[in-house]
């Protein structure tokens, strides 16, 4: 039923490393709703580039540490 995106992430791990930041705190900091953060964490939504940078900034890390691109097949 759920359609996974090609972008995976470590947001959940990085949130706990950032003083156990809650999804609500992260959502407020980056200007998204908590449901969108949940959808991103579960791989149901690929955020915009701007939102991705904001998330990385809020977690005090680089974009590469937060998001990884894992295409199913080369060239797709």
């Amino acid at each position: 039923m759920v359609k996974p995106t090609a972008i995976t992430n470590n947001i959940r791990t990085l949130r706990f490393m950032a003083d156990e930041m809650t999804q609500a705190d992260l959502a407020e900091e980056v200007g998204l709703t908590r449901q969108t953060i949940i959808a991103i964490e579960q791989g149901r939504y690929s955020p915009s580039l701007e939102a991705a940078f904001k998330i990385a900034q809020a977690l005090n890390t680089g974009l590469d540490d937060v998001f990884q691109y894992s295409p199913k097949a080369p060239g797709k």
Binding site: G31, T33, Q35, Y45, S48, A51
Partner: peptide, 10 residues
């Protein structure tokens, strides 16, 4: 207590 905002996913 829930979010009432409309964001990029919406």
């Amino acid at each position: 207590g829930a979010d009432d905002e409309f964001d990029e996913r919406d």
